[in-house]
Design a protein around this nucleic acid. Structure first.
Lengths: 338, 338
DNA sequence: TTGTATGCGTTATCAG
DNA sequence: CTGATAACGCATACAA
């Protein structure tokens, strides 16, 4: 049980009677060693239970083959799918994930970023985070490749991956309009996010285009949470003329919204239609059955990892944006206006 | 942008005119250096933007200040809360989380364990994993401290953290009995898990004690998933005399079960009461409103990290088990038998 | 094709 | 109290 001494390359060298460098080369699969030697080395290494130390390799290579992921809360179903996507790609090239939750707290984020950078991660994936702090901006431009997910920032020359917010909102609103709604509410997410801004602007423009009634008065600033949905229900139900359909900031928000409306005697979709944005697993369950704009989060995470790895190899290529399509999934929380 | 050269302890030493070792000691806060020197060093280090390399430190210390977490799927809401708990404690002592998803695939798990061990993680937290493979068992007993979560194994001398499966099932069944049910169904989880076995045995014993009707015929082997719940609905609804109440393997399973039952014209709780096990966020939403046995997953994760860290310091203490209490949360999916 | 020597950045040991 | 040196394990440049 007392950690038996580590078997190192040196041990394998001694055992085979070869030099450390030969063993290293053999194990690395370089064609500098003759097949027979390599086979012998490999076999011996295996026999001795040799395992290369990634720590030592990292120090030597000045690269850790690890990717840091910053997320608000992994246990939030609206966010964790991104992580899977990042991991899918990272693993495929031998990278490990270092995970840090920030709970949207700036100081936690700063500390987490420092730690990850001190660990010399090959790169950082930022999933919806604070970008306005000077310490954050400094770290983001200090050499560690970083990619922004779902929140872009024109001031930062970084790769970005997000979803087609404009297209998603347009598709949803057109559908809503098509089934007869004219008074349509909109719950924003946290306004510091570029995705939220894009959606808001699209809502305003499209609402005008489709001739919705008084859209400005039907915009409610919210967050990506169940609780915020509950609050929004209070707002909308308190209006003199409530909307007949509401586009929520995300699925969790939509679910809270529906619960809040229901508590006030407004049933979905009988009295109010509701549209989400996410398509979390939950949205597909019959008990919820939420009409929503699907975001391909796992794909977004994967794309983020791809951009990041590319940047590790070519640090000087210009910043790139990758926008993944969205798709409206019509389910049971929307009904034609009668 | 080309990664400006790293500022090392050597640079700080040169700049201050002191020796590397003195700088190291000063920065480490040892009382070997006189306060004035320390202040000078700290100030200079800060000015130069010095950041200690955790990689180098890890190589030197043969310890990475990182904890590996193996989980089936972080994006599964029934599991991710454990991760948060582990992280809470890990972060509080300066450890970072290395995350690996296995998708319940043995080979993926073996690879992930190898990688994590090669990275010299201080310890491993295994959340519901395969333990029956010889390679896994070997790694688990080869020196890297490990703690088992939700699945214990008497053959493995490892720390274990789980919830009070026995108490939870008893509390649920007593409540079910109290509101008049006599025919009670039970969906197991995957039978290789000790938690599942404990629950099953408790179900059998308690069902007998409470005088339930023909309990053995009302046991269905399932998994922890929505899909398995759907299947279970098929099983139970096909019985000559279906149960009036069903205890599901977990919340997701319960939700699938309810959906499946509903598709077959059986409403919850009108026709069948359903009890879950987990208390995921979702369970509290009005649209679901699931009666369930709450597992304190974040607390379990935290406890796992605590045991692990203790074992890192004292590798030779005997293996320990920590069982956290459960609690029945009565909501709307259970109703008295009429 | 194989061997030797060196450095990645830290910290511990030991000498001054 | 401070300084010099070695070692953690690997991979590379260069020599043989």
């Amino acid at each position: 049980m007392p950690d038996q001494k580590r078997v190192t390359i040196k041990d394998v060298a001694r055992e085979t009677g070869l030099a450390m460098s030969t063993v290293s080369n053999a194990l690395a699969g370089k064609d500098l060693v003759k097949p027979k030697t390599r086979a012998f080395v490999v076999e011996t290494a295996e026999r001795l239970g040799y395992r290369a130390s990634i720590v030592a390799r990292s120090l030597r290579a000045q690269r850790s083959y690890a990717i840091g992921v910053l997320i608000e809360d992994v246990s939030n179903p609206s966010a964790s799918a991104f992580v899977r996507g990042v991991e899918d790609v990272a693993n495929s090239v031998g990278c490990t994930l270092l995970l840090a939750d920030t709970d949207s707290d700036l100081e936690r984020q700063v500390m987490a970023m420092r730690t990850l950078i001190d660990r010399q991660v090959d790169g950082l994936v930022l999933i919806s985070q604070h970008l306005d702090d000077s310490r954050v901006r400094e770290m983001l431009t200090a050499g560690t490749p970083s990619v922004l997910v779902q929140r872009r920032d024109p001031r930062l020359p970084l790769d970005y991956v997000g979803s087609d917010n404009t297209g998603g909102v347009i598709e949803a609103l057109r559908y809503i309009s098509r089934i007869g709604h004219k008074r349509v509410g909109f719950v924003t997410g946290p306004i510091h996010s570029s995705s939220v801004l894009e959606r808001l602007e699209t809502f305003q423009a499209t609402a005008a285009e489709l001739g919705f009634e008084d859209p400005e008065s039907l915009i409610h600033e919210g967050r990506y949470s169940f609780g915020s949905g509950l609050e929004a229900a209070g707002f909308f139900s308190g209006l003199r003329t409530p909307p007949t359909c509401i586009l929520a900031s995300n699925d969790m928000n939509a679910i809270g919204l529906m619960q809040g409306l229901s508590e006030r005697g407004m049933a979905t979709p009988r009295d109010v239609s509701v549209v989400g944005l996410d398509d979390i697993d939950l949205a597909g369950f019959k008990a919820i059955d939420l009409t929503t704009v699907r975001l391909e989060k796992r794909a977004i995470g994967a794309e983020a990892a791809r951009l990041l790895l590319r940047r590790v190899d070519e640090p000087d290529r210009p910043a790139e944006s990758s926008i993944l399509p969205t798709r409206l999934i019509v389910r049971g929380t929307t009904a034609p206006l009668t």
